[in-house]
């Protein structure tokens, strides 16, 4: 069954490769899968620009995303808990969140560069903005979905307000918090590349690497960079899902 899922992508790759061999797809516009593989190997071995190897590009990008994402989680989860817990806080902070949220994170790039200069800080800031809102909103709605009966039972069992937040609202909202974290990390990772297009002047970063490949007309390496970004995003998401299953053994399953 699991292998069945690979049939469609493999068929697509094979057709693509065949059309490239037949000359139906011009290589300078869309290189064949094998050419992309070769480009990837070159990125790993030689690097782009030469000497700047792929693993370093990847590590730098991960570093920026980690900063932005962890900051977003560290602010977003507690704020979301507070907003779910208190109607008053929700009334004050909610409109603020709703005002800023529709602004695309990338529209902040000029301001980010003005405030933080070009470097990890401005990239992390953009990623923070991308990840923050889904985390806050999912945490809040997760708290609001916790049954009032659970809170009442906890209170009659002697829970104070702190206990209710920590021992009822937090675990009750955890599944929803994890959804928010996964969406947030996904958006953060997507935002990264664009942030690196403009927010990195030289050195490392997958987005920067792709820009260099574009400048020297290496479509194969642009695509190889895209593949690396996609696969890394997938791996990170799987890691978060695994973490979620470990932290929430009561979820799902018979």
């Amino acid at each position: 069954m699991r292998w069945g899922r690979c049939i469609a992508p493999l068929a697509l790759l094979a057709t693509w490769q065949a059309l490239s061999w037949l000359g139906a797809i011009p290589a300078h516009k869309l290189p064949s899968p094998l050419m992309i593989m070769a480009g990837l190997v070159e990125l790993i071995q030689r690097g782009l620009p030469p000497g700047y190897r792929l693993d370093y590009h990847l590590l730098y990008s991960l570093y920026r995303v980690a900063w932005g994402f962890l900051l977003a989680a560290a602010v977003g989860v507690p704020l979301g808990l507070l907003m779910g817990w208190s109607r008053r806080i929700r009334g004050v902070v909610g409109p603020l969140v709703e005002m800023v949220r529709p602004v695309p994170p990338l529209a902040w790039i000029p301001l980010a560069i003005l405030w933080f200069g070009i470097g990890v800080k401005s990239a992390a800031f953009i990623i923070f903005l991308g990840a923050f809102f889904p985390i806050v909103l999912n945490t809040t709605s997760g708290v609001l979905a916790v049954s009032p009966a659970l809170q009442e039972v906890a209170r009659t069992l002697g829970a104070g307000e702190g206990d209710v937040v920590r021992r009822v609202l937090l675990p009750g909202a955890l599944p929803s918090i994890f959804v928010g974290l996964r969406i947030g990390l996904g958006i953060g990772w997507m935002t990264l590349v664009a942030a690196e297009f403009t927010g990195v002047k030289s050195g490392y970063g997958l987005g920067y690497m792709i820009m260099v490949a574009r400048d020297i007309q290496r479509a194969d390496q642009v695509l190889a960079g895209m593949v690396v970004i996609g696969l890394t995003g997938l791996v990170i998401d799987q890691l978060l899902r695994y973490l979620g299953r470990r932290l929430m053994p009561w979820q799902g399953g018979g």
Binding site: A149, R155, T156, L157, P171
Partner: peptide, 14 residues
Amino acid sequence: PGRVGLVFQDYALF
């Protein structure tokens, strides 16, 4: 708290 125990129809277990 703690002086009254509650049992609901839908159990309300954590």
